[in-house]
């Protein structure tokens, strides 16, 4: 048996040839050198970046660029806004999407397939198509330039995502558990909050983090629907560092790293889930 599977592995996962190694090295370089350059620039002195014969490694590494970020009150406000809006988006999407996912997964009613189709298409609608109408609608109900308005606009793309992610997870819940809850006399509402949601907590957290990441990364709505006081970091970055064509590149790279760190932390926490979640097509590329 062991021998057999070893042979199988040797065939399905062959060793790399010399040419294969070169190709792999080239692709890994393409993937990672820009990350190196992002990091190296962030630790470089502002004046060194413009030197003609500068070294490709920061010889006098500095944390000034990071310090400058945390001394910039506008950017700190953007950072706080990012946390508020992304968290709000995640909570709203997971709660509403969780109920929807449970409904789609465990109940059968007419129109159910149409609803699934609706959310599947919802995943494909680009933000630009909603932009003008959302601007007008949020304006007419007084939610333009508010956290609530921005959270609602982010939910246009995070809700379909959480619905499908959570439906996949709830499909795996055995119906017997729900039957047992019924037999034990638990009400249908209590079943949700005392049986179903607690059983899928890891899934709820994962879906919430996906929604958080998507909200955190959005630029279009942050730029147009948030206004200067409520805008999130991506919108802030486009304004803080570029003036008349010249830019403070080390400062911008440091701020970019800071913007990326929360997502890196989430990635590490969710690494296993990412593989299947990505494969489900549930996450934008």
């Amino acid at each position: 048996m062991t021998r057999r599977s070893e042979v199988g592995e040797a065939i399905s996962q062959p060793r790399l040839s010399g040419r294969g190694r070169v190709a792999l090295a080239a692709l890994v370089a393409f993937g990672l050198l820009p990350i190196y350059w992002l990091t190296a620039t962030a630790f470089t002195n502002r004046s060194d970046v413009f030197a003609v014969h500068r070294p490709l490694i920061p010889l006098n590494p500095t944390i000034d660029n990071f310090v400058a970020f945390f001394q910039n009150t506008a950017l700190l406000q953007d950072l706080a806004n990012s946390f508020v809006v992304s968290t709000g988006t995640a909570l709203l999407s997971v709660f509403v999407g969780g109920l929807m996912a449970y409904s789609l997964s465990k109940f059968r009613y007419s129109g159910r397939n149409a609803l699934m189709l609706m959310f599947l298409i919802g995943q494909l609608i680009p933000g630009a198509l909603l932009l003008v109408s959302l601007y007008l609608i949020l304006g007419s109900v007084g939610l333009l330039y508010t956290y609530t308005g921005l959270i609602l606009s982010f939910t246009t793309f995070t809700l379909p995502l959480t619905v499908f992610l959570l439906k996949g997870i709830m499909d795996a819940l055995p119906d017997d558990i729900l039957e047992a809850a019924k037999v034990d006399g638990l009400s249908r509402i209590s079943t949700i909050f005392r049986i179903v949601f607690p059983l899928v907590v890891p899934g709820l957290i994962a879906a919430g983090m996906f929604a958080f990441m998507r909200g955190w990364s959005d630029l279009l709505f942050a730029l147009t629907l948030a206004g200067p006081d409520k805008q999130t970091l991506p919108a802030g970055l486009t304004q803080a560092f570029i003036h008349e064509g010249t830019a403070d590149w080390p400062g911008l790279m440091a701020a970019s790293l800071i913007t990326s760190i929360p997502l890196a932390i989430i990635f590490v926490l969710l690494q296993r889930f990412f593989v299947s979640g990505l494969a489900a097509g549930a996450v934008k590329g």
């Binding site: 820009p34 955190w216 630029l219 970055l237 590149w249 970019s256 913007t259 990326s260 990412f274």
Partner: peptide, 20 residues
């Protein structure tokens, strides 16, 4: 490690390549 480029927000990717 190769997942890192996917992880970065779109604006960060755009700024990084503008700089490159």
């Amino acid at each position: 490690l190769m997942m890192l480029p996917w992880l970065l927000p779109g604006v960060v990717v755009a700024f990084l390549w503008s700089w490159i």
